[in-house]
């Protein structure tokens, strides 16, 4: 058993060696906002924040998460108030199918934390998540909008 802190709540979970954090979040804690997309760290749909840094949870062993603070898409809100990135996402009408958007939003939150006013080049470098619907221009616009808040 290990203890992981997700969105400020500690959870005792059983996770064998090598089990990625993603599946603990999705199948053990039943928090399904964090998505499985590729399982090999390539698409970014599973992105969560670990101690504030964007991390692809499909390739992060849950055992390494013990004692760290994990933030998932469900934990971005403060009470009922959306995070400014989520709000910007709605205003830009960024999602299409929406499946990649939890990961996109988490990556954007991590980017804005380090670069509050990112340039387009910095957005290109940080936002490597796949959006199969091709909502990239709306996502870019949303990041710029969130940076202004």
């Amino acid at each position: 058993m290990i203890t992981i802190n997700v969105n400020g709540t500690p959870h005792q979970v059983e996770a064998e060696d090598g089990m990625p954090l993603l599946w603990v979040i999705r199948d053990v804690l039943n928090m399904t906002g964090t998505k499985y997309g590729c399982g090999v760290g390539s698409c970014g749909a599973c992105t969560v924040l670990i101690d504030g840094a964007a991390t692809r949870s499909c390739s992060f062993p849950a055992a390494l998460a013990a004692g760290k603070n994990i933030t998932t898409i469900e934990g971005l809100k403060t009470g009922d108030t959306l995070h400014k990135v989520q709000q910007a996402w709605i205003e830009a009408q960024a999602p299409q199918c929406g499946f990649c958007q939890s990961g996109q939003i988490m990556a954007a939150v991590a980017l804005l934390k380090e670069k509050p006013q990112p340039t387009d080049a910095e957005i290109d470098a940080a936002m490597t998540n796949i959006c199969r619907c091709g909502a990239y221009s709306q996502i870019r616009a949303a990041i710029h909008a969130a940076a202004k808040v």
Binding site: M31, T32, G33, T34, K35, T72, I73, E74, L76, K77, L82, Q86, W89, I90, Q93, A94, P95, G98, F99, Q101, S102, I105
Partner: peptide, 11 residues
Amino acid sequence: IPGKVDGSAKY
């Protein structure tokens, strides 16, 4: 869209 930015949309 709102359900797709806070993780609540169910696929």
